[in-house]
């Protein structure tokens, strides 16, 4: 009894006061730097690099916003694209369709694959290694190579022509490793306790996966899907030769359509429509900012949850 009490009282000491001893004043630091000028140089380099990195980011965003927002006009959001009015509305709508189509193809595949890897495959399964290697290879392939493959396979060999569908399949392959990896991580973060509890109550494997494991992994999976949306919205090179560059609202999945990023490329390509390109850049940048914010919020929720446990 006595012993326990002493342990508790020692724990009562304010931790902050201990750390405060370790904290150095500016003057102390200067004295240390005087002793070792190399440390000062290294310190300055580190600070300089960080300042450069974040200044570049701020400057880029600020520049595009400041120069672009005055160029945003209602005309740019009218329904039809014409040579007089380079409306980005059709491109916006195509982007939404393209995103939905790609996700419909890639998300079930990615989640299914992750479920297989985490829940079904036994350790040392040869398929797991092969799938991991394939996913790693896919995530390193540049988008232009995806574009050429999409053109050779979907557009030419399958005779789909330049179409939303060809573009969506190409992008689906591109985001597949991303969806797979984030889902895998989300599934691995689900504690085994939950699975054991479910089995203990007599649920089968399938029911455990769908009713217990997947629901608790949803925020993590969603964060991955949102990142994938960011990739889709920003992609250009993989789409120019798969979904083509027609600037009209697509009527069917087989019609050619340009997404916002491709639209922006088309505007800058001939150098005639810089104002419209600025405006498109603003819209793209805002979409990316929103997407990053959402995925950060979700990731924070996942982290908070895992700490609770």
């Amino acid at each position: 009894m006595e012993k326990k009490n002493t342990i508790e009282s020692s724990e009562l000491v304010d931790i902050n006061s201990i750390q405060a001893i370790n904290r150095r004043s500016v003057r102390q630091r200067l004295r240390e730097y005087k002793k070792s000028p190399l440390s000062l140089v290294l310190f300055l380099f580190v600070i300089l690099a960080a300042v450069v990195t974040f200044a570049v980011l701020l400057f880029l965003i600020g520049y595009i916003l400041v120069k672009g927002i005055p160029n945003l006009s209602l005309d740019l959001f009218s329904w039809n694209y014409s040579t007089e009015n380079q409306s980005m509305m059709p491109a916006l709508i195509s982007t939404i369709f393209m995103t939905l189509l790609s996700l419909i193809i890639a998300v079930p595949l990615g989640i299914g694959a992750a479920i297989y890897l985490v829940e079904y495959a036994r350790r040392g399964n040869k398929i797991v290694g092969a799938v991991r290697m394939a996913a790693e290879t896919l995530s390193g392939v540049p988008s232009i190579v995806y574009g050429l493959f999409g053109m050779l396979f979907f557009v030419t060999t399958l005779h789909w022509g330049y179409s939303l569908l060809a573009g969506a399949f190409t992008l689906a392959i591109m985001i597949l490793p991303l969806v797979m990896r984030t889902t895998e991580e989300a599934l691995l973060a689900v504690p085994d306790m939950l699975r054991e509890g479910s089995f203990g109550l007599g649920a089968g494997k399938l029911r455990t996966v769908f009713k217990i494991v997947l629901p608790s992994a949803v925020p993590g999976i969603l964060a991955g899907v949102i990142l994938a949306i960011g990739r889709i919205v920003g992609e250009t090179a993989a789409l120019i030769y798969t979904s083509g560059t027609v600037a009209a609202v697509p009527k069917t999945p087989m019609s050619s359509a340009r997404t916002l990023a491709v639209h922006m490329y088309a505007l800058t390509d001939n150098g005639l429509y810089m104002e419209q390109a600025y405006a498109t850049a603003v819209v793209l940048l805002i979409v990316v900012l929103v997407i990053n914010f959402l995925s950060a919020v979700l990731a924070k929720r996942v982290a908070a949850k895992s700490i609770e446990r």
Partner: peptide, 16 residues
């Protein structure tokens, strides 16, 4: 998140 944003900016915007 700022570093992640740097990764999220589309290459066409960088190019522009």
């Amino acid at each position: 998140p700022a570093v992640e944003l740097l990764a999220g900016i589309p290459s066409i915007v960088y190019g522009f």
